Amino acid sequence: MSIYLVSRHLGAVEWMNHMGHHYDKHLTHLDNYDQLSAGDIVIGSLPINLAADLADRGVGYMHLSLSVPEHLRGRELSAEQLSHLDAKLEAFGVRRILH
């Protein structure tokens, strides 16, 4: 089992390290699912369709959750700002429902 941190934001990487959250590999983008195996865990802020793709492969997903006020949206946030915004990791189980 491997844990992947997927984020292009340096503040998120720094926050993970500062908070003592373990990950095995940092990726800036998740564009190659072939490297993932059932039982792996991905940490990030992924769109729901990508989280569903992970679930289809038996890969767990931990979401880096935070509420960003409007005046900070679209800006790079530091690890300190993430902490002030009460960032946290939350496990989500997402599944695609076919009709």
Rank of each mutant, 00 (worst) to 15 (best):
M1P: 15
S2A: 12
I3L: 10
L5E: 13
S7W: 05
S7A: 14
R8E: 10
H9E: 10
H9T: 10
H9P: 06
L10S: 11
G11Y: 11
G11T: 11
G11V: 05
G11D: 04
A12D: 02
A12V: 14
A12F: 05
A12T: 14
A12G: 13
V13R: 13
E14V: 10
E14L: 07
W15C: 02
M16R: 03
M16G: 12
M16Q: 11
N17V: 08
H18T: 15
M19K: 11
G20W: 07
G20I: 11
H21C: 11
H21Y: 15
H22D: 13
H22M: 11
Y23I: 05
Y23W: 08
Y23F: 15
D24E: 14
D24Q: 08
K25N: 00
K25I: 10
K25E: 15
K25Y: 08
H26F: 03
H26Q: 15
L27V: 02
T28Y: 02
T28A: 06
T28M: 01
T28G: 00
T28F: 00
H29L: 03
L30E: 00
L30F: 07
D31L: 02
D31I: 03
Y33I: 12
D34S: 10
D34F: 01
D34Y: 09
Q35T: 14
Q35L: 08
L36H: 10
L36I: 10
S37A: 11
A38K: 12
A38L: 01
A38C: 02
G39Q: 02
D40N: 12
D40I: 07
V42W: 07
V42Y: 08
I43M: 01
G44S: 03
G44V: 03
G44D: 09
L46Q: 01
I48P: 01
I48Y: 00
D53Y: 01
L54Q: 08
A55N: 14
D56A: 13
G58L: 05
G58M: 13
G58T: 11
G58E: 04
G58A: 13
Y61D: 02
M62D: 03
H63V: 00
L66M: 09
S67V: 12
V68Y: 07
V68L: 04
V68A: 13
H71Y: 08
H71T: 13
L72V: 12
L72F: 08
R73P: 04
R73T: 00
G74A: 12
R75L: 12
R75C: 02
R75K: 14
E76G: 08
E76H: 14
L77N: 08
S78R: 10
L82F: 15
S83M: 09
S83I: 03
S83T: 15
S83N: 08
H84F: 04
H84E: 15
L85I: 07
D86L: 06
D86S: 04
D86T: 04
A87T: 08
K88S: 01
E90C: 00
E90Q: 11
A91K: 00
F92Q: 05
G93F: 08
G93K: 03
V94P: 00
R95F: 05
R95D: 06
R96V: 13
I97L: 14
I97R: 09
L98Y: 05
H99R: 14
H99S: 10
H99P: 15
H99Y: 03
